[in-house]
Design a protein around this nucleic acid. Structure first.
Lengths: 189, 189
DNA sequence: TACACCTGAGAATATCCGTTCTCAACAAGA
DNA sequence: TCTTGTTGAGAACGGATATTCTCAGGTGTA
C-alpha cells in the first residue's frame, strides 16, 4: 500500500469557505486557497478538476454544514418559536462575514446557471419551510389568522437575504436582533 | 484646437453598469467593457486611472442615477404611500438584474473598505429615510402607533436588500409585489 | 529491507488580463 | 494649407493566475 493522503476533504472545504467569503470567487486565488487549506495543488486538481467545480462542492458543503442545520429549526416546526430560533442562529452565522451562497448569487448569478439553480432551490426550500411554520402557528393560534401565509413566507425569505448583506457591513448584530423582534412581533396574536 | 472626444462620460458609465451587473467586478474584463461602451482604452485610463477607480465612479453614478431618485420618494415623505412607491420603483430597477451596489458589497465588501463605507452610508441613509416616513405615517394615523419606528425601519432596509438578491433569481416580479403587500399591510392602522 | 506506488511541494507552463505604448487620422487655429 | 496637439484603435507588455508536470520522500507490503 502506498502513502495515505494527509488531507481531509470535509476540513478542506470548511477552510475554503473562509477564503471564499473573504475574497469572493474570482478574488480568491489558488495560491491562497492552497496556502490556507491543508491541501496541495496536485491533490486539488485530482479531487476537484477545476476551481469552478471546487466552488460548487464548497457551496454544497456550506449548505449542508451551515445552512441545513439552521433550516431544520423550521422543519422541526414548533411554529413561531422555530422562526425565532432560525433567525437567532442565522444572525450568528452571517455576523461579520455574510453568507457564501448569497455572495455567490450576487457575484456569479447572472452568468452561472448552476449557481442560479442552487440559489433558487435554496430560496424555494426556505419559503416552503416558513410556510409550514406559519401554518402550524396559525393552527396553534400563535399568530393572527388573517396573516397571508404565502406572502409572509416570501417576505421572511427576502428578509433572510437582507440579513446576509447586512452581516458583511455590520460589526455588531444587536440591531439585527431588534429588527427580528419588530418583524415577528406584529405576527403574534 | 485639437480633436474633440467622441465619448460621453455619463453614457459610458451607464453602459458600464450593465456589464458589471452581468459579470461582477472581477468577472468583467476590460476588453468587454471597452467593446460595450462608446469608449477606448486610452481614454479609459486617462479618465479613470484604473479599473478599480472606474468601479467607484460607476457605483457613484449608479447611486445618483438609479437609487437616489427612488429614495427621494421617501424624503418627499408622504408617509406610507411613499414607502409603497419606493418599493414599486425598486422592484422595477432590480427585476432580473439585481442591484449593482448590493452585488459589489457581496463580492468585494470583505476586502474593500471603500465599498463597505459606501454600502454603510447607503443603508444608513435608507434607514433614516424610512424612519422619517414611518414617523410621519404615525402622526397622520396611517399606521398603528405601537409600531417601533427604528426597528421597523431597519427591517424595511433588510427587506430592500433581500429584493436585490431575489431580483437576480426571479424572472417575474409579481410575487415580490405580493410580498410588499404582506409587508406593509400589517403596519396599517 | 527492498520494492512499488502514491503523495506533497513547488517549479514550469500557458493563458488571461490590466495597463501602457504606437501611430495614423483628424480638428481647428495660423 | 500647414501646423499642432489630441484622439481612437489596437498592438505590445508584463504581471498575475489557473493548470500541469516533476521528482524527492514516504508508506505499507512482500
Amino acid at each position: 500500500m502506498p502513502r495515505k493522503a494527509l488531507y481531509n476533504v470535509a476540513q478542506v472545504l470548511d477552510q475554503a469557505v473562509d477564503v471564499l467569503l473573504e475574497h469572493g470567487f474570482h478574488g480568491a486565488i489558488m495560491d491562497e486557497i492552497i496556502a490556507r487549506t491543508d491541501f496541495n495543488r496536485r491533490a486539488f486538481y485530482l479531487e476537484f478538476g477545476s476551481k469552478q467545480q471546487f466552488l460548487y462542492q464548497v457551496l454544497e458543503h456550506y449548505q449542508q454544514q451551515k445552512l441545513a442545520p439552521i433550516i431544520s429549526h423550521l422543519t422541526e416546526n414548533k411554529g413561531l418559536h422555530s422562526i425565532q430560533a432560525f433567525f437567532d442562529d442565522y444572525i450568528r452565522i452571517v455576523r461579520g462575514r455574510g453568507c457564501l451562497l448569497i455572495n455567490c448569487i450576487a457575484e456569479l448569478g447572472a452568468d452561472d446557471a448552476k449557481i442560479r439553480e442552487v440559489g433558487r432551490h435554496y430560496l424555494d426550500n426556505l419559503q416552503i419551510s416558513f410556510i409550514g411554520c406559519l401554518e402550524r402557528a396559525i393552527r396553534h393560534k400563535q399568530i393572527r389568522s388573517e396573516i397571508q401565509v404565502e406572502s409572509t413566507a416570501l417576505q421572511l425569505t427576502c428578509y433572510v437575504q437582507g440579513f446576509a448583506i447586512n452581516g458583511i457591513l455590520a460589526g455588531q448584530t444587536d440591531e439585527l436582533k431588534l429588527a427580528t423582534q419588530a418583524l415577528l412581533g406584529p405576527l403574534s396574536s
